[in-house]
């Protein structure tokens, strides 16, 4: 009986410890700050400008090679 009580107390302590730990972790994660600048919604998220620049020469060759298509 005593053992049992002691065991359940340990369990309670562990549980509350876990709850506190997760509480701290959550507090650490959720940090929301309003941005200084207005939020811009860019619809072309899948187009990376550095890729466009890198492709410049390839694309010029492509156009030259396929005159019937461009």
């Amino acid at each position: 009986m005593v053992m049992n009580k002691d065991g359940s107390r340990k369990w309670l302590m562990a549980a509350s410890g876990a709850a506190i730990a997760s509480g701290i972790a959550l507090a650490g994660c959720v940090q929301i700050q309003a941005p200084d600048k207005p939020i811009e919604i860019n619809l072309n998220v899948n187009i990376r400008q550095e890729v466009i620049i890198r492709l410049e020469k390839d694309v010029r060759d492509l156009i030259e090679k396929h005159p019937g298509v461009f």
Partner: peptide, 28 residues
């Protein structure tokens, strides 16, 4: 035909088809 050409180059360069298409649009 354009799409096929874009798809080829995209695969060769490891970029998306839209990126190749957009880069081509810049030139065109």
């Amino acid at each position: 035909k354009r799409r096929a050409i874009y798809t080829d180059l995209a695969a060769q360069r490891g970029v998306t088809v839209q990126e190749v298409a957009a880069a081509t649009a810049c030139q065109l």
